[in-house]
Nucleic acid binder design. Structure first.
Lengths: 254, 254
DNA sequence: TCCCTATAATATGTCGGAGTAAATAGAGAT
DNA sequence: ATCTCTATTTACTCCGACATATTATAGGGA
């Protein structure tokens, strides 16, 4: 639908193949190039230290202007993926320089086959942060927070996790907990990870049936937070995340 | 020194005031603009939803080309600070869209008076992550990791934390622990936070003397990790981070 | 052998114009 | 009076050529 309208509106564009093919509806041209290069780098097609083809050569190859290419490189540079210096060209930086927690970088990492080890790393980080967040939420939540969680829970019950609406409610639930911590850094971090991780679970769970009814576990978390039971909330959340880790891990390795 | 050489090499540049004034040695022009706008946004000079002055107007105002301005905007967009659409102009996004964990954004946040609440948020996050990291390190470290930690400790003992070399050794110590977790996501996260937080502590501690000898606490962490005592490592690290939090908090509020 | 200078390759900065998309105002219909 | 549709305006988007700055590399000099 959306793509068609974009194509209809601009069939007379005389840009190169890439511009015609990759430019989505709202997407800018340099965004498309950044996406292409970003996914290529994240998927390991370039080894760290590899130098991308030069500005002029690359731009000609893709039939886009140098401006578009340069703006794309600025984006990649801002995310720590590459570094470009005169004469030396634009080189891919070593992995530890990448902003792996950048939402866009995470998204790029998860297009195609995501690196198994990296997914495990993210789950591990989530398993560290979310229980602690639940603990803080239990100490700091107010009535409004509890209402958001409760609403999300009822929504989850109505639509199951098999539907998109149900998964959205699940995200809402976690988001409400994070908001209740009153910690923006925590909120941003888990939002980034959560988006990427949920995306994969959704993707992977197409094959196998949903493991088991997750509602009771969520309710346990909610009850502890509502009661102000910090330790209980942390423990309940730990159980919840461990379960998700377990499921995803087993569906990934085999 | 470096600045002088840069000035010497290019006194004939006929760019505008801004280009002459703000361009540092290695810094690119668009980088300088991004820095200027980034710090302005992070310091709250623009309310979310505010629209920056238009491309043409701004470029003329600073006497830089539109291209430079555009590349700077790409950087800010990549970090989630702004969003620009035709006709609407370039608007500052709401705070929760910002990539607060991006190293550069963090650096921008800490130029000038950093937001007290935000610093507390970061310390809280650190207090969550680092003990967990110590736990993992105790389980997974190898001989090489232990050697790195030990070397860093001896360096810390020789130069105290009052010297830059000593602080570098401190960073090395924590970095070695993070490496030992074998978790890249964790490593990147704490590297970002650590750089920003250490910077402030260094800044703030100019006034008051170093609180107390931190070496024994570090040794306790090391011993637990070396012994493979996961719980002990987590607990020792928790004590260490709490101490830092306490010191910084007290030096901030009063 | 080492250092230093010259060169060439490559990225960076600049400019102005043409194209495109969206917010807004105004005309027409209900 | 309100709503819908169209036209205009405004700002971003893209382009390509030109000029400049930087630095890796090679070659000459001490």
């Amino acid at each position: 639908m959306e793509k068609q309208s974009a194509l209809e509106s601009g069939p007379d564009i005389e840009n190169g193949q890439f511009a015609r093919a990759a430019r989505g509806p709202g997407r800018r041209l340099h965004g498309a190039i950044a996406h292409k290069l970003g996914t290529a780098i994240l998927s390991g097609q370039y080894a760290p230290g590899d130098t991308l083809s030069g500005e002029v050569a690359f731009a000609e190859e893709l039939e886009v202007s140098r401006s578009a290419y340069r703006e794309a490189i600025q984006v990649l540079t801002a995310k720590g993926l590459v570094e470009s210096r005169p004469k030396a060209g634009t080189r891919v930086l070593p992995r530890h320089r990448w902003n792996l927690l950048d939402p866009e970088v995470l998204a790029w990492a998860f297009t195609g086959e995501p690196d198994t080890q990296f997914v495990r790393d993210l789950f591990e980080l989530r398993a560290i942060v979310e229980p602690a967040a639940a603990r803080l939420a239990a100490e700091r939540r107010d009535k409004n927070d509890l209402k958001r969680m409760k609403d999300a829970l009822t929504a989850m019950r109505r639509h199951t996790l098999a539907t998109e609406a149900g998964r959205a409610a699940d995200r809402d639930f976690h988001s409400a907990i994070l908001s209740a911590t009153r910690n923006d850094a925590l909120l941003v971090l888990t939002a980034s990870i959560g988006a990427a991780v949920n995306w994969t679970t959704q993707y992977k769970q197409r094959a196998r049936a949903l493991p088991r009814n997750p509602i009771p576990d969520h309710v346990r978390v909610f009850d502890a937070i509502a009661a102000g039971d910090a330790a209980g909330a942390a423990e309940a959340m730990r159980a919840l995340v461990d379960l998700a880790l377990e499921d995803t891990a087993s569906s990934m390795t085999r």
